[in-house]
């Protein structure tokens, strides 16, 4: 082991720098740091304003800065922020679980079995899903009324979960199917000889292997409700049922309730866990994204 690099010896694999390259490298660094500033400045504003006690209803730059938690306090005490958080988490967890339940079956079936309409059905649904359905959203109301007539206690939140999970079936099936396709079918055969039935092959062999992909699918379905503003704003009527996105929007959409710093504070609290999650899992998340379209 060489612990000390000997001076004067050129140890790098790379060719030495020419003056031109040095300039180019410097420009690269300048550009990179400039963009770092472009990204961090607005985000920093969110953080700063959320702690700025000297602002009341509107966010202003400049002026006096007074560190305080009063906007957070406002969120928790004056607004049902905690309720929004719980609503969102409940919906997100339910969505993730329901999605996994649907998709793990369909993904396995689509990958391992040849049956009629296999290719066409998935493709058709994925294409049809690109149609925006503002107009048809009235159908959701009616559908909800019919289902809740049949099943009492079927709340709007449950319906929202069903919409999230149902809407993701096609694309998630597509992603999971692609992943299972890459597992050799000889494994299935071996498991069958070792004594597994149809379902056991999936539960004991395939599922543990595809667990990373299932985790990614679950994660995406979990994050979805945190990011979506539109559907909850349409489906959920009662502010008590609001999710974070719809709830926070009430803080800035009309002048009566306007409280921009509180919005910043709430945004910060919402964004923080998600950002940490993204940074920790960036590799897996990106690979999940890419495999959906590139590998398929």
């Amino acid at each position: 082991m060489i612990k000390q690099k000997k001076k004067g010896l050129y140890l790098s694999d790379r060719p030495p720098l020419t003056p031109l390259k040095t300039i180019l490298l410097a420009i690269s660094y300048i550009l990179l740091f400039a963009y770092v500033f472009v990204i961090l400045w607005p985000l920093a504003q969110i953080v700063l304003s959320s702690f700025n006690g000297s602002q009341s209803q509107y966010i202003r730059i400049g002026g006096t800065y007074q560190f305080s938690f009063k906007h957070f306090k406002f969120l928790f005490e004056e607004k049902p922020f905690l309720k929004w958080v719980i609503n969102t988490i409940v919906i997100a967890v339910a969505t993730a679980l329901l999605t996994l339940l649907f998709v793990s079956f369909t993904g396995y079936a689509y990958s391992r079995y040849r049956f009629k309409g296999r290719k066409a059905s998935l493709m058709a649904i994925m294409l049809i899903q690109t149609i925006p359905t503002f107009v048809g959203i009235a159908a959701f109301y009616t559908l909800h009324s019919i289902i809740s007539a049949a099943i009492p206690g079927f709340s709007r939140q449950m319906f929202l979960v069903l919409i999230y999970a149902g809407g993701g079936i096609a694309s998630n099936t597509f992603i999971l199917k692609g992943y299972i396709d890459s597992i050799s079918t000889e494994l299935d055969d071996a498991a069958r000889i070792d004594g597994c039935g149809n379902f056991q092959v999936y539960r004991l062999i395939i599922m543990p292997i595809v667990r990373p992909m299932l985790a990614i699918i679950a994660l995406w379905s979990f994050i979805g409700p945190f990011l979506d503003y539109m559907l909850p704003s349409i489906i959920l009527g009662d502010p008590e049922q609001y999710t974070l996105a719809t709830g926070l929007y009430t803080l800035i959409n009309d002048s009566r309730n306007m409280h921009q710093p509180a919005f910043a504070a709430g945004g910060l609290l919402t964004a923080l866990p998600i950002v940490i999650l993204f940074i920790a899992l960036q590799k897996q998340l990106v690979s999940g994204l890419a495999s959906g379209a590139v590998k398929g």
Partner: peptide
């Protein structure tokens, strides 16, 4: 990489709304 990931990681509705606030009359 971590910095450049941020615009994607922060929920879009938050950043958009915040930019909207910042561009409002008298906004930062």
């Amino acid at each position: 990489r971590t910095i450049y990931l941020l615009p994607w990681a922060v929920p879009a509705f938050i950043t958009i709304m915040f930019f909207s606030i910042m561009f409002s009359p008298d906004g930062p």
